[in-house]
Design a protein around this nucleic acid. Structure first.
Length: 117
DNA sequence: GCGGTGACGGTCG
DNA sequence: CCGACCGCCACCG
């Protein structure tokens, strides 16, 4: 029962984050906060950024599908941000100038997330 | 063990 | 729309 939200950092928190990011379908994007919540780390969006930053080059994790809640690419263009935008466009995601993306059209809706509609 | 830092998020002007 | 501030919390020196 007492299965509320686990507030304590679970062992291998990074792996949990990577597992969630890996579930993001091609051509879709998710926000840091969304990924954090899915990984059981609600409110710790910053940690998601940290985990993705620690990813090695050539990782199987589609880190480029994660953007901020403002619907924009967080990384500066001169430091990977441009690469991220290119990768997204290659998947069919429409990326406007400044790394802006329409969450309404491309945000991934996980099945386990309830949404009062 | 303490303090600065940041691939965030929400609010305010 | 955009920049500035603050709150949160794990990572690192």
């Amino acid at each position: 029962m007492g299965e509320g939200v686990r507030r304590k950092a679970a062992p291998g928190a990074y792996d949990r984050i990577y597992a969630v990011v890996r579930r993001i379908p091609r051509g879709r994007v998710a926000t840091y906060g969304q990924v954090a919540a899915e990984a059981g780390l609600a409110g710790r969006a910053r940690q998601v950024g940290y985990a993705l930053h620690a990813l090695p080059t050539g990782s199987v994790v589609p880190w480029h599908r994660v953007i901020n809640s403002a619907g924009r690419v967080s990384l500066p263009p001169n430091n990977g941000g441009l690469d991220q935008q290119l990768r997204l466009q290659a998947e069919g995601v429409e990326v406007f100038l400044g790394g802006r993306i329409s969450l309404g059209r491309f945000q991934w809706k996980s099945a386990t997330r309830s949404r009062g509609s």
